[in-house]
Design a protein around this nucleic acid. Structure first.
Lengths: 251, 251
DNA sequence: AATATTCGTGTAATTTCATGCAAAGTCAAG
DNA sequence: CTTGACTTTGCATGAAATTACACGAATATT
C-alpha cells in the first residue's frame, strides 16, 4: 500500500467515522503503529486533521459549532440583516437565500406583522421555527450540502412557480466588472432564477466580499436592485459600484 | 474512546442534559470514576464547566426548556434510531419523517455506504449536513412550524413523484384499534401519502406513544410494514399490536 | 451528630509519543 | 546492470500521557 493511498484512506475514515485510533488502524492495515502515527503527524502538519492522544480527529468537530459560525463577523452581519429586515412590509412575500448572512437577516425579521418567507435553505427554515408571524414556504430539491440550499430541476420548477416581492441574495463575491459570483455552478443558476422571479433583488454584502470574484457568475451588478453594505466604507471604495448604476444602502 | 472525544462528549451532554453525574457517566462509558472526575477537573480549570459535588454543571445557566429537553427520553430514541438505521442498505432511497425520534435516526444512519434520504423536514436536512455519504432530497411546501415539516399541495405533488424503498414514520400515538394517529390534519394526510409511495413503512414508537390516540388518523396499524418499539416491553403490552398482524421489531 | 458519598492527591502500571537509526525498497542516471 | 540518492518502514529508547487504585479529607444526607 502506497503512502498516499494510506493517507487518503485515513482522510476517508476520519470523515466516515469521525475518528482514527492509531492502534486499531495499524492492526487493520497490518502495519506498525509507527507508520500510522507518522502519517497522522504529517497530516496534522498539513492541517488535514487534529492530532490527539491515541489517534486523530477531524479538524471541524462533528457538530457544526454555532459559536464559530456566528463569530464570523457577527456584528457586521447582524447590522446588514437588521437593515434588510427593515425593508420588509406587512403581507409581502420575500425570498431568503441560504448562508450565514441571510441567517442573520432571518433572526432580525420583524415580529410585529405578518409576511411570507420563501427559502430553499433548510437552515433558514430552522431559524424561523420560533418566529411568531412569518409564514414559511420551503423550496424542495436536491440538497447541496456545502451551502445547505436545494438545487436542481425540482428547485427551479418550484421557484418559477412563485413571484416574490423582494429577494435577499447572498453571494461569495461582488466585483464592479465581474459582477455577482459564487462558488458553485448549480447555485449560480438557482440564484439567477430566483432573481428573475422576484420584483426586487437586494444583495447582502459583508466587507470581505467586495472587490473579489468567485468562479461562477450569477449576474452583473446592475441586474440587482441594490446592494446592502456595511456602514463606514469610504466613498472611494464604493465609487466603482455606484458607477454601475446599482443602488447602494449602507447598514 | 479517545480522551478528547470523551471531553467533547461531556461538553455535549452538559449542553443537552444540563448536568453530568460522574458516577453515572463512568458506568456508562465503562471507565473508572477517577477518569471522569479528572476530565471534569481539567475542563473546569479550562473554564468549560462548573464543578459541583457529584458531577458538573454548565457555566451558563441551563437552557429554559431544560426540563422539556430532559424529558425527551433521549436514550430510548437513540436506541430506536440505531435499530432503524441498521435497516438501511447501500443505494436505497429512504424517506425520513420529521420529529425528534427520526432526528435520532438521522444521527445514527450508516456512514460507510451511500444512500439517498428524502425528507420533508428542514430539521432532518440540517441534521444530515455533516453526513459524509447521504444524498439528501428535500420536499418543499408550506412549513408547518409545530412539527417542522412541509405540507400542502406542493409537498404532496413532490412526494407522489418519487418512490422510496423504506419510509420511517414518526407519529404522536399508536393504538391497536385506533391505529396510527397524529395531531394535525394536513400532517396526517401527508404521512399517508408518503406511506402510499413507499415500498415499506416502519413506524418508530417510543413507549409513551403506545396505547394512546390523537385526533387525526393516518392509517390503521396493519397498513404499516412494522413497528420499531423499545426493548424490554412485556409480551402482554405488545400482544394487542401483534394481533393486528403488523410486524414488531424491538430495539 | 452519624453515616455514606464524593473529592483530591499520590503512586504505580500501562499505553502512547517522538526521535534516531538501520534495513529494505524505489527510482533514475550512468 | 550497477550505483547512489532518496523514500519508506520497523524497531529501540526514553519521555510524556493516561488510567486505575489507595487513602485521608471534604461534603452531603439522614
Amino acid at each position: 500500500m502506497l503512502t498516499s493511498q494510506r493517507k487518503a484512506l485515513i482522510a476517508e475514515r476520519l470523515n466516515r467515522d469521525g475518528e482514527i485510533v492509531a492502534k486499531t488502524l495499524a492492526a487493520e492495515l497490518d502495519l506498525s503503529e509507527d507508520t500510522i502515527r507518522r502519517d497522522l503527524r504529517e497530516m496534522a502538519a498539513e492541517g488535514l486533521l487534529k492530532r490527539v492522544h491515541g489517534g486523530a480527529l477531524p479538524l471541524s468537530p462533528p457538530l457544526p459549532d454555532f459559536a464559530a459560525r456566528q463569530s464570523l463577523a457577527t456584528d457586521e452581519k447582524a447590522a446588514l440583516g437588521a437593515r434588510a429586515a427593515a425593508m420588509v412590509a406587512p403581507g409581502q412575500v420575500i425570498f431568503l437565500d441560504g448562508g450565514t448572512t441571510t441567517a442573520a437577516l432571518a433572526r432580525a425579521l420583524p415580529r410585529n406583522h405578518a409576511f411570507t418567507v420563501v427559502t430553499h435553505s433548510p437552515t433558514i427554515a430552522c431559524e424561523l421555527e420560533r418566529h411568531p408571524t412569518a409564514d414559511v414556504v420551503l423550496i424542495g430539491g436536491r440538497l447541496y450540502k456545502h451551502s445547505m440550499v436545494t438545487t436542481g430541476a425540482m428547485a427551479l420548477e418550484a421557484i418559477r412557480g412563485l413571484k416574490a416581492e423582494i429577494y435577499f441574495m447572498g453571494v461569495t463575491a461582488a466585483h464592479p466588472t465581474h459582477g455577482l459570483t459564487t462558488g458553485d455552478m448549480e447555485e449560480a443558476a438557482t440564484k439567477r432564477t430566483i432573481a428573475e422571479n422576484a420584483a426586487a433583488t437586494w444583495v447582502l454584502l459583508t466587507q470581505e466580499k467586495l472587490g473579489r470574484a468567485s468562479p461562477w457568475r450569477i449576474m452583473p451588478l446592475p441586474a440587482a436592485t441594490g446592494l446592502i453594505v456595511p456602514g463606514g466604507l469610504t466613498p472611494e471604495a464604493l465609487a466603482p459600484y455606484r458607477e454601475t448604476g446599482v443602488a447602494i444602502v449602507e447598514a
